[in-house]
């Protein structure tokens, strides 16, 4: 603690000599706008009786002599005692309180780190770095597994698409799905002498299969329709009717077939083929091309009892 500090207590060197006179009872100088002697004459000796200048400025009136200094507090109203310096002090102290509280609050919010010692901070930092490395490894591992899962998902998706496609194909082949596409309708009209025999229809079906037919159905005169699949059988029924897969159809019969129309038409029209034999029996076969034929009848699949897939 320096000497000058102990003298003033305000951190400012006290000018040589006794202190300047204060107001009565130790109050701050109550006179408004009281000029500081330092300000008026910095070099003048301190502690001298106040000069006329100071009195004049203090009372706001022309000089009345030294007597005015004796009781200045009594002559001014309380509000006028709020000199600019007092206001300034108030403002500064208010600011101090404000900053103090703000700083206290700020410090109390994150006191854990600011109050920590250096070794603790180093240890915390070390821990954090180790944790960061661990977390980075975790991230890498998780990204790797995510990548694997994503590729696995893509593979599964492709497999699912493939399986769906195959299921569609097989469903059409097995007759469990309706199908549409280019094809033919083949209409068998019996002649007066003989009805259309099951053998002729079976011939036609085989011929069409040989020519690349992909889906077929046969419908009778009463609109009953049966899907023709690998296991479909044809029998001659009573009164010239036809039994297909246990259902009884009456003529005329119409086979709707999906496949390449030109090939199938050629196959049906070959010499000694279906058209020729039916015509020989006195019947008639009408083959029509269809841009979009529809095979909508479904075959009910039979549950497999004995056969098991070999995988």
């Amino acid at each position: 603690m320096s000497d000058e500090h102990t003298q003033t207590g305000t951190g400012w060197p006290q000018p040589a000599g006794p202190a300047r006179p204060d107001g009565p009872a130790g109050e701050p100088d109550p006179r408004p706008d009281a000029p500081d002697p330092d300000e008026l004459s910095p070099l003048s000796p301190q502690g001298s009786p106040p000069g006329p200048d100071e009195d004049e400025a203090a009372s706001g009136e022309p000089a009345e002599g030294v007597a005015a200094v004796a009781q200045p507090a009594a002559t001014v109203s309380p509000w006028r005692r709020l000199s600019s310096a007092t206001v300034m002090i108030g403002v500064l102290l208010g600011l101090l309180g404000f900053t103090l509280v703000v700083q206290l609050k700020t410090t109390s919010t994150d006191s854990s780190l600011t109050a920590a010692r250096q070794e603790d901070l180093v240890r915390i930092l070390y821990d954090l770095e180790a944790r960061e490395i661990r977390l980075r490894q975790d991230i890498a591992a998780l990204e790797e597994s995510q990548r694997q899962l994503r590729s696995g998902e893509q593979g599964r998706q492709a497999a699912l698409e493939e399986a769906t496609r195959r299921a569609d194909e097989l469903g059409i082949l097995a007759g469990t799905l309706p199908a549409r596409g280019p094809g033919l309708t083949v209409r068998f009209e019996a002649g007066a002498a003989k009805p259309i025999s099951a053998m002729r229809v079976l011939d036609a079906v085989q011929e069409l299969r040989g020519a690349g037919a992909e889906a077929m159905q046969i419908s009778g005169g009463d609109r009953a329709t049966v899907r023709i699949v690998a296991s479909t059988y044809f029998l001659d029924g009573e009164n010239g009717s036809l039994v297909v897969d246990g259902r009884r159809l009456t003529g005329p019969y119409t086979i709707t077939v999906l496949g390449d129309p030109a090939t199938m038409r050629t196959a049906l029209n070959i010499p000694g083929g279906v058209v020729a034999s039916v015509a020989g029996d006195g019947g008639n076969v009408i083959v029509e091309d269809r841009e979009v034929a529809e095979v909508s009848a479904l075959h009910k699949p039979r549950p497999l009892e004995h056969a098991r897939p070999v995988s």
């Binding site: 305000t10 202190a19 300047r20 204060d22 701050p28 100088d29 330092d38 007092t86 002090i89």
Partner: peptide, 14 residues
């Protein structure tokens, strides 16, 4: 402290 010492000065304080 300056006030208690009766040497308090507004301007000096500010």
């Amino acid at each position: 402290r300056a006030k208690l010492d009766r040497i308090f000065d507004d301007k000096q304080f500010v």
